[in-house]
Write a protein that binds this DNA or RNA. Structure first.
Length: 697
DNA sequence: CCGCCTCGAGTTCT
DNA sequence: CTCGAGGCGG
């Protein structure tokens, strides 16, 4: 890596670099801000933009001399459009500072108490927690109980008059029902709240938009913002906006912020029933954790909670810092996206010899875990992303699990960043690299990496299932010269292992016992473990059938070899789902002298095939295909698969309209959504078990 | 030949 | 989980 580039990746920057980075970040954030607030376009997600702001904020803390008044960290809100009447807010509409962790929250409370010079008064209602809905803030004015004016936040001081549009929102009362005589005298009332779009309405609008040939909207908030600033109120009324109010600006003698919610509700406003008070920060954390987990069940988008010092007097005493009140903070949910920097791109060689580029990332917190690597799949993907070492990138977790690079932010690219090139020679053994479709492969069929990865595959759960013999240990044995191929595993002796460093007699004994236990294996699993290209779990089963047609009694690897040599294209084509490519790969495998030798060696080592009991040919589930998603309570997924197959049912990994049933356990994944979309019947665990029990008879 | 349905293969972190 | 690609039906 060139020197400058390297420094960019380090945590510590010198002044010159920090200044440059700060400048670039400011420009980039400003670009997104302008697009978002002024043009109602969402170029990147809020989470990604927040992540950039956080980096800028941290850098500015480190180098305060570079803080300028035009920095995005020093401002909030947007600019009013020319078309609307301006409204000057009686009291500025503030925003909130953000916290991203429990530590941030503890720091916040500490800062608060330092500022006050005393502890916050603590009781069971110390704080008030509100769900932070992803919408836009509005102010509503009532005179003698009649709605007279509504406005957006704008820049906090001056907003836009959107009264006509707000009148179309049914959640906003046009006339207040003030029964309480204490409140009745009220001539003027100013309240504030949030305008938002429910997820359902957002989906409906998106569907309609797509039907009319338009582009899908980015997120509900954008649509809400766009809707409320329509010049034609009719358009607004066609969109079913919703609203909660959460703040009373007028003085009605309220002592706690919480009381404002009660009053709002009493006089006819819609308030969020999920909001709750909390006694301690720990209670706040519980509220945060609960909704962080359950936010998908809410009918609207939330991106965190707002925590407010409940006592209004104390709240006011804390004052304002910048454009946010000190005594309130937005405690964000862990983002689904973040930005970080590609420190390096390494290249791995897999079992099939394919070279896979992997981005080495500057570690970043995302959804509760630290991400340090993300696959870039192949050269085409890198080209598509135009991702380079040194680039700032947006990462997310696909299906909330696997890290994925969404986008490279090219304007933040250091000048020295060069385009990535696939190595010409294999990083493991130096052989020439050849191109095969989108993939690049190591030209050497016996490349060390292939052998190594092949061994990982051999011991894996779906193959020989040698527990306690994972990749790390395979590596040790290979490097110590104890094994060189899969068959060698079965000749391992306790004595050989126990002499190695960090291995005791006990663990050596365990490993050898495990190996002996697994010498007997079913034919499909044995075939799968060989790692024949294109032969996975499913095709192994088919291949086993094809071999059993030649010789119905296969007990030893030797008979597997004999059968394999008798296979022909024609015989393989008889099997469904085996075509030219797969057949060629299978035939080539058995022709290879090295593989023949390996199969014979397995015989010497005492590997044997279990003859499986004949499966019921006409079980009750024959002709039905199942897809499993989520986890079941009463059995593992493997067990469920076996049960279905035992009754002649089919198990598949992907949902289509041919799927008979989707069995959904707890926390189902995307297959559940797809099933709903395709209107495939969905079974819960109970129904599934019932079906199995019926199938017995 | 095209488009759908599946399967295979690779991947991350606790 | 997702992507790519093999198999197969239309």
């Amino acid at each position: 890596m060139p020197g400058l580039l390297k420094l960019f990746c380090n945590n510590f920057m010198n002044k010159v670099q920090a200044k440059e980075r700060i400048g670039k970040l400011k420009k980039e954030i400003e670009k997104y801000r302008h697009a978002y607030h002024v043009l109602d376009q969402s170029l990147i997600s809020d989470a990604a933009s927040d992540s950039l702001k956080k980096e800028l904020f941290d850098l500015e803390q480190q180098f305060p001399e570079f803080i300028t008044s035009d920095s995005p960290t020093q401002r909030v809100g947007g600019e009013p459009l020319k078309e609307f009447q301006k409204v000057r807010h009686e009291k500025p509409m503030l925003s909130f500072n953000d916290a991203f962790s429990k530590e941030d929250m503890q720091d916040w409370l500490e800062r608060l108490e330092n500022y006050l010079g005393r502890k916050i008064k603590s009781n069971e209602k110390t704080f008030y927690c509100e769900l932070k809905i992803d919408g836009l803030a509005i102010e509503l004015e009532y005179e003698n109980g009649i709605f007279v004016r509504g406005s957006t936040r704008g820049d906090g001081l001056v907003g836009e008059d959107v009264t006509q549009n707000l009148k179309t929102v049914e959640a906003i009362p046009l006339k207040l029902e003030v029964k309480n005589p204490k409140l009745r005298v009220l001539k003027k009332l100013i309240v504030r709240g949030e305008i938002f779009l429910t997820k359902k309405e957002f989906e409906r609008m998106n569907k309609e938009q797509l039907k009319n040939g338009g582009k899908a909207y980015a997120n509900p908030r954008n649509v809400a913002a766009g809707s409320i600033r329509q010049l034609d109120p009719k358009i607004t009324s066609g969109r079913k906006l919703d609203s909660f109010q959460y703040d009373i600006i007028s003085d009605l003698g309220q002592k706690l912020h919480e009381e404002e919610h009660e009053i709002l509700k009493e006089i006819g406003f819609k308030t969020n029933p999920k909001n709750a008070h909390a006694g301690t920060l720990d209670d706040v954390f519980k509220f945060h954790e609960y909704w962080s987990k359950h936010r998908d069940q809410l009918p609207y988008e939330v991106d965190g909670i707002v925590v407010i010092v409940n006592n209004n007097k104390e709240f006011d005493d804390c004052g304002v810092v910048g454009k946010a009140p000190r005594a309130a903070i937005a405690f964000k949910f862990s983002a689904r996206e973040a930005t970080t920097i590609i420190e390096d791109i390494s290249v791995q060689v897999g079992r099939t010899g394919v070279l896979t580029p992997v981005a080495v990332l500057k570690p970043v917190q995302l959804g509760g875990i630290t991400i340090s690597h993300a696959t870039l799949h192949n050269a085409d993907e890198i080209k598509r992303l135009d991702a380079r070492v040194g680039d700032t990138v947006i990462v997310s977790r696909a299906g909330d699990v696997i890290p994925k690079i969404i986008k490279a932010l090219k304007d933040l690219r250091p000048r020295a960043a060069k385009e990535f090139e696939m190595p010409k020679f294999c990083p493991v053994d130096g052989s020439k690299v050849i191109r095969d479709g989108v993939a690049y492969k190591c030209g050497n069929k016996n490349c060390g990496a292939r052998n190594r990865e092949g061994l990982y595959h051999f011991v894996s759960r779906k193959a020989f299932n040698l527990e306690g013999l994972g990749p790390k240990i395979i590596d040790r044995f290979l490097d110590e010269g104890l094994i060189s191929d899969a068959a060698d595993i079965f000749s391992l002796k306790e004595g050989d292992i126990a002499v190695l460093e960090r291995f005791g007699e006990k663990s050596a004994k365990n490993i050898v016992e495990e190996i002996n236990l697994r010498k007997k294996i079913s034919l499909p699993k044995f075939l799968y473990s060989l790692g024949i290209i294109h032969v996975g779990e499913e095709t192994s089963r088919l291949l086993a059938e094809a071999l059993l047609k030649i010789n119905p009694k296969i007990h030893s690897p030797k008979e597997v070899l004999a059968g394999g040599l008798k296979l022909t294209e024609e015989k393989l084509f008889e099997m469904p789902d085996i075509g030219p490519a797969v057949a060629k790969s299978i035939l080539e495998y058995f022709q290879n002298p090295g593989h023949q030798k390996l199969l014979k060696k397995f015989v010497e080592m005492g590997v044997e095939m279990i003859v499986e009991k004949r499966k019921a040919e006409n079980g009750k589930l024959k002709g039905l295909s199942f897809v499993l998603t989520g986890s079941l309570e009463s059995m593992s997924r493997e067990q469920a698969k076996e049960k279905i197959r035992a009754f002649s049912g089919d198990v598949s990994e992907s949902v289509s309209k041919n799927t008979s049933y989707v069995v959904a356990g707890s926390e189902p994944g995307s297959k559940f959504e797809k099933a709903k979309k395709l209107e495939v019947k969905i079974l819960d665990e109970e129904q599934f078990l019932k079906m199995l029990s019926k199938a017995v008879f």
